[in-house]
Simulated assay, not measured.
Amino acid sequence: MKGLTGRRVILTGGASGIGRAAALRLGAEGCVVGIFDLNGAGAAETAQAIEAAGGSAASWALDISDYAAVQQAHDAFEARFGPVEGLANVAGWDAVRNFLDTDTAFWDKIVRINLYGPLTMHHVVLKGMAARGFGRVVNVASDAGRVGSSGEAVYSACKGGIIAFTKTMAREMARKGVTVNVLCPGPTDTPILQSFFGAGDAGAKIAEGLKSAIPLKRIGQPEDYAGMLAFLLSDEGAYMTGQTLSISGGLTMNG
């Protein structure tokens, strides 16, 4: 895509799932990719895969809700590769539970990963983008933040917060040359979704029922989101900001 060759991008959550698929796509497009993930081994594997394919990447193991750790890793990336031009906040976590069966420790974990983490990444990275007058940011939320999702109350609240935060940042950063958009995946083949289905015949029936409700008749795969994420980080998406894009096989239709 236009403008991605050599573009320096930090991506969170690149150790697995949607984050790994997006990191590999960005590497293939010619981006220099810095992968931030709590799973250091997985992040390193993704970076090695990018480099094995002829790309440029490095990884850092850190908690993205730890401001000092994010600042340190950001500074290390810039010292090695140069100023950050793109940010993709993909990291996320949840466990499916009815809200009344949860406790505050569970809430805190979800909020720190899914809301506080992206806030920290923005606060650290966007200062440099604003000063230089250029940047591309893509946040990955969820359709759970748009329409709700049973068993994911706190996660849905965080993702709804990211949608609202993205729109606000898009307004604040527009005159500084920084675009900020958000992707909302629908049901995707990840460990979170598998835990929702459960094991055995009952789980299989739930999965088939969900597939039948999706107009495209299949569960999303991590690779289904990488192209749109790359587009929004490229020069092709330069006139888009503050937008919420649902990618769900038609399960939810926005607009």
Rank of each mutant, 00 (worst) to 15 (best):
residue 146 R to M: 13
residue 204 A to N: 11
residue 217 K to E: 06
residue 229 L to P: 03
residue 193 L to P: 08
residue 85 E to C: 12
residue 75 D to A: 15
residue 241 T to S: 14
residue 114 N to M: 03
residue 253 M to L: 15
residue 144 A to M: 02
residue 127 K to M: 01
residue 51 E to M: 12
residue 249 G to E: 13
residue 196 F to W: 14
residue 137 V to C: 08
residue 64 I to N: 10
residue 23 A to V: 04
residue 175 R to Q: 14
residue 203 G to E: 02
residue 126 L to D: 02
residue 221 Q to E: 14
residue 90 V to G: 12
residue 173 M to S: 11
residue 195 S to T: 11
residue 188 T to M: 06
residue 88 A to R: 07
residue 243 Q to S: 15
residue 241 T to V: 02
residue 35 I to F: 07
residue 154 V to Q: 06
residue 228 M to V: 13
residue 17 G to Y: 05
residue 172 E to H: 07
residue 12 T to W: 09
residue 213 A to M: 15
residue 145 G to V: 06
residue 140 V to A: 03
residue 119 L to G: 00
residue 114 N to I: 03
residue 196 F to V: 04
residue 121 M to V: 01
residue 184 C to V: 06
residue 39 N to G: 09
residue 3 G to K: 04
residue 129 M to I: 08
residue 138 V to A: 06
residue 62 L to A: 05
residue 19 G to C: 10
residue 15 A to I: 04
residue 87 L to S: 11
residue 54 G to W: 05
residue 234 S to W: 02
residue 201 D to M: 05
residue 130 A to W: 04
residue 11 L to D: 08
residue 40 G to L: 10
residue 108 D to E: 14
residue 129 M to S: 10
residue 185 P to Q: 06
residue 233 L to R: 08
residue 80 R to T: 15
residue 63 D to K: 11
residue 89 N to C: 15
residue 225 Y to H: 13
residue 128 G to Q: 08
residue 180 V to Q: 09
residue 45 E to A: 15
residue 172 E to R: 10
residue 49 A to Y: 01
residue 211 K to T: 14
residue 72 Q to V: 00
residue 193 L to T: 08
residue 220 G to P: 11
residue 102 T to Q: 12
residue 64 I to M: 14
residue 31 C to M: 05
residue 149 S to D: 07
residue 101 D to I: 01
residue 69 A to V: 06
residue 138 V to D: 05
residue 55 G to P: 03
residue 78 E to A: 08
residue 254 N to G: 10
residue 95 A to M: 11
residue 93 W to Q: 11
residue 7 R to D: 07
residue 191 P to A: 12
residue 243 Q to A: 15
residue 208 E to F: 00
residue 120 T to C: 15
residue 173 M to P: 00
residue 22 A to T: 15
residue 208 E to Y: 00
residue 33 V to I: 09
residue 234 S to P: 02
residue 125 V to Y: 00
residue 112 R to N: 14
residue 48 Q to M: 04
residue 142 S to P: 06
residue 188 T to F: 10
residue 185 P to L: 07
residue 115 L to D: 00
residue 113 I to K: 02
residue 47 A to M: 09
residue 241 T to C: 03
residue 67 Y to V: 11
residue 183 L to E: 03
residue 112 R to S: 13
residue 43 A to I: 08
residue 198 G to N: 03
residue 130 A to C: 00
residue 123 H to L: 04
residue 97 R to F: 13
residue 154 V to I: 15
residue 51 E to L: 00
residue 250 G to A: 10
residue 230 A to L: 08
residue 232 L to W: 07
residue 175 R to N: 14
residue 106 F to G: 01
residue 2 K to Q: 13
residue 147 V to W: 10
residue 188 T to D: 06
residue 15 A to C: 02
residue 126 L to M: 14
residue 175 R to K: 14
residue 223 E to F: 00
residue 96 V to C: 14
residue 229 L to K: 10
residue 95 A to D: 13
residue 116 Y to V: 11
residue 67 Y to C: 00
residue 3 G to A: 11
residue 84 V to C: 15
